[in-house]
Amino acid sequence: MPNAAPNLLPDAPALRLAGAAAPRRPGVDGLAGVDLELARGDFLLVHGEAGAGKSLLMGLAGLTRRPGSGRVEVLGLNPWRLRPAGRARLRRRLGLIFQDLDLVEDLTVAGNAALPMQIAGARPEACRRDVAELLDWMGLGGRAEALPRDLDHDERQRLAVARAVAGRPEVILADEPVGWMGPDAARRVLRLLLQLNRQGATLVVASRNPDLVPAPRRLELARGRPLAETPGEVQP
């Protein structure tokens, strides 16, 4: 599966935030003063209590939220200086797992999973083949024609993960990717994410659980402020 856009700046960091801040709502403080640089292939676990600002950070990195101040660069580009079409091309290089899942309710499971590839212009047969393989791997092979509302939360979350990784993104941003899953499914999903990271994708996982997965880099957030980044465990 090809990526949506050619890698124009191969040496640029995958993600760079400099003094980035994002209000929770207009006039309400959210996240402030985040400085972060991730090289290609890095893996960062962001953890903190509920309301610490993890989702705001993921929103800034995933281009779903415009920074109130500071600077955000993704794959060497300042997305908010690009035209909408350029920003769209950049978004195709990201794989997002939203906390609210953001499934398209009137598309089938297969349709949801295929969406990033369709948007990137992949051929329909390639789409069908890859989606079938991916859904099988995620344990959703038998539900390909179901609608998201017919899935339980565990299945919905697996579908969100499948959709995020379907386009072989260069950067994967996973906000509580296994929060509602049973232990087996969670292990399987985390294994998939780590495998993609080993293959070169930059991975950022946000979770309330600091022990969710061993990560070489860890960043704790508290009340919207980053605490000192700590080195984590090296993957086996």
């Binding site: 909408p84 950049l90 978004r91 953001d102 309710e105 969406l115």
Partner: peptide, 16 residues
């Protein structure tokens, strides 16, 4: 709106 927002987040252009 929900479907459009998701598509935009996944990299669809506003025109599409």
């Amino acid at each position: 709106e929900a479907g459009l927002r998701t598509r935009l987040r996944l990299g669809a252009t506003p025109f599409s």
